[in-house]
Simulated assay, not measured.
Amino acid sequence: MSLRDRQRADTRHRIQRQALRLFTDRGYDATTVNDVADAAGVSAMTVYRNFPTKEDLVLYDDFEQLTASTLTALPATGSLTDRIGRTTLAILELAAANEHELLLARLRLMIATPALQARHLDSQFRLQEAFVNAICADDPSLEYGARAAASAVLGVTHTALLRWAAADGEADLVDLFREAFTAAFGHAP
């Protein structure tokens, strides 16, 4: 990553953290993009350049890229569901360890804010597509099975995330995912 790319990522991260803090403190609807820009020390144009919509301030993540790189780095063994489950587990381990509070704040806002609920479905679809594209890169005939497996694992993930949010992030997210995966598929990922 070049210096410019790192600076842009740092700016994006700072803007998103400030947005999440303000949305949590003041409420999503009561916070303007100008409020976020002021808190992050940037112009409103910089906010819009990094986050085209207010919803993106909550929903933006790089999980699609992380999904593809993680899936291809892990052994391509077991069923499609197992491969996607191992990938999801690795991503959740990383997110829970490094971005616990950010992930929890985003999840709480997605659950509580009607404007974000529908857009969240869009991000779920993009994540499903990332799994499908990564799996089908070598074998396009796996598309239907990959889509079904990704949908199923994302449903399990959603269940674990909701339980985690209900426990105020106190429960172990990785354990909740393993428990939900085992309940759905009869074995751990």
Rank of each mutant, 00 (worst) to 15 (best):
T46I: 10
T32L: 08
T182N: 07
W164P: 00
G155R: 07
F177T: 00
R147M: 03
L80C: 10
A90Y: 05
A96P: 08
Q124H: 06
P189D: 06
A105F: 11
S141M: 12
G169W: 03
M45D: 15
D168T: 06
E99G: 01
F131R: 08
Q16S: 09
V156C: 10
L107R: 13
L154N: 10
Y48R: 14
T88Y: 04
T31A: 12
A39L: 13
M45I: 07
A118L: 14
D5N: 10
T81Y: 03
E101V: 04
A39D: 14
G186M: 02
L74F: 09
A19T: 01
S2F: 03
T81R: 15
A167D: 15
V47I: 04
R106C: 12
G155P: 02
A73C: 00
G85R: 06
T24H: 14
S43G: 15
A30N: 09
A112G: 05
S123T: 11
L80K: 05
E93F: 11
H187G: 07
A90I: 00
N34S: 15
V33L: 15
V47M: 08
F177G: 01
P114N: 07
R8G: 09
D122E: 13
A73H: 06
D82I: 01
L154G: 03
A171G: 06
F63G: 03
L3E: 12
L103I: 04
D38H: 14
A97F: 09
S151C: 09
L22P: 08
A40I: 05
Q16P: 01
I91D: 00
R49H: 15
V47Q: 03
A152E: 15
I84D: 02
L20M: 13
G169K: 05
A148H: 11
Q16N: 03
V174M: 10
Q18F: 01
L142W: 02
D61F: 04
A160L: 11
D35L: 05
D56R: 14
R26E: 08
L20W: 13
H13M: 09
T32P: 03
V33D: 11
A146D: 04
S43A: 12
T182R: 14
L121Y: 14
S2Y: 03
Y28T: 03
T67V: 04
T159C: 00
A115S: 14
N133C: 07
D38S: 10
L102P: 01
Y48Q: 10
V58A: 03
L162Y: 07
D61C: 06
D175M: 10
A97I: 03
E179M: 09
R49K: 15
L102G: 11
G78T: 04
Q128P: 01
L161V: 09
R8D: 13
P114I: 05
V36Y: 01
V47G: 01
P140C: 02
R21P: 06
T24R: 14
A39Y: 15
